[in-house]
Design a binder for these strands. Structure first.
Lengths: 161, 161
DNA sequence: CTCCTCCGTCAGGCTTCCTGACGAATGGAC
DNA sequence: GTCCATTCGTCAGGAAGCCTGACGGAGGAG
């Protein structure tokens, strides 16, 4: 076993853990749809933009968006500034899905952080950034915990009195 | 970006680097075929065994093996001990492909080791093993270098006089 | 107005998996 | 020795996830 193979096992575990947490509430979500949410919220973006940042063709993204639209997660609305373009809008259900996804990935992240300890996790994070050609700062654990708590609430983001 | 997402970028880089190194000489090799070689050499194994250790159905493995057979990388031969079963045998070309694959993954491994340095790489390796639920010892760099050198030779493993 | 570019979409195809069903061979129960 | 459940590889069909090519409609520069 070499480094790439070993890393694949870890990725597979993290991916399926994330999907498994969301699956009971959103069984229509297929693995490929995660790419829609991997680079920030898709709300307000055009199909072409989403395709470009996910590294796929607009035809393929068209199918993914169509599936999510058929299942009530989003709808397409015309762009007032460019009548060729359509903007993706998350419905309430889509927003709920997005929060669930973020919470699930935060849970996995915190589980890994807890399992490795802060020092080793910091080394892992920096190494992955270098190997993956990215320079993201590690997210704040407190912020992740807040996201997890927020996802428990069904709808309104306003704090109860 | 969370840990799983970050790790995916690194995996994608490592995977495509491995495939790109082999592609010029073996353009018929599709990404899915890597799973055949990920758990040791497939030589002598049965379809059902290969499917089980790759975590897929025997029907799916049947297609992958069929593709490699059509392109001359292997053939099926009857198992003398069980006339229901067939054993996969690598041809000379298949053996050459296998050595190329091992060399390519060794090159990526050494590149990562060199980029991170021994200490950080050791932490990365141990962390990935824990997160992936595996306990593989890190391969010896000298052995990897030897594999890379061996893959340069076209056929005979005998050392020239 | 003309032409080139970009938008989303339709059509068709390939790859990579799946489930279901089948004939042939195995091997244990009796 | 004869059943019979199990296992072997395989065929058939289909879903998912990507691709290329082509198109009509709209934008924008000249």
């Amino acid at each position: 076993m070499r480094a790439v193979g070993l890393m694949q096992f870890a990725v597979e575990r993290g991916m399926s853990a994330t999907l498994d947490e969301v699956a009971p509430r959103h069984p229509e979500l297929r693995p490929a749809h995660l790419r829609l949410f991997r680079y920030g919220p898709p709300d307000g973006a055009r199909i072409t933009e989403l395709a470009a940042r996910s590294g796929m063709t607009k035809q393929s993204m068209h199918e993914l968006v169509g599936h999510l639209e058929r299942h009530g997660y989003l709808h397409r609305e015309p762009d007032p500034a460019d009548s060729r373009a359509l903007r993706v809008r998350l419905t309430d259900r889509g927003d709920e899905l997005q929060r669930q996804l973020r919470a699930a990935s935060a849970r996995v992240h915190l589980r890994w952080l807890d399992g490795l300890g802060p020092e080793r996790f910091a080394v892992l994070w920096a190494a992955l950034g270098e190997l993956g050609g990215r320079d993201d700062p590690p997210p704040d654990p407190a912020a992740l915990a807040r996201e997890i708590a927020d996802a428990e609430l069904p709808a309104t983001p306003a704090t109860p009195a």
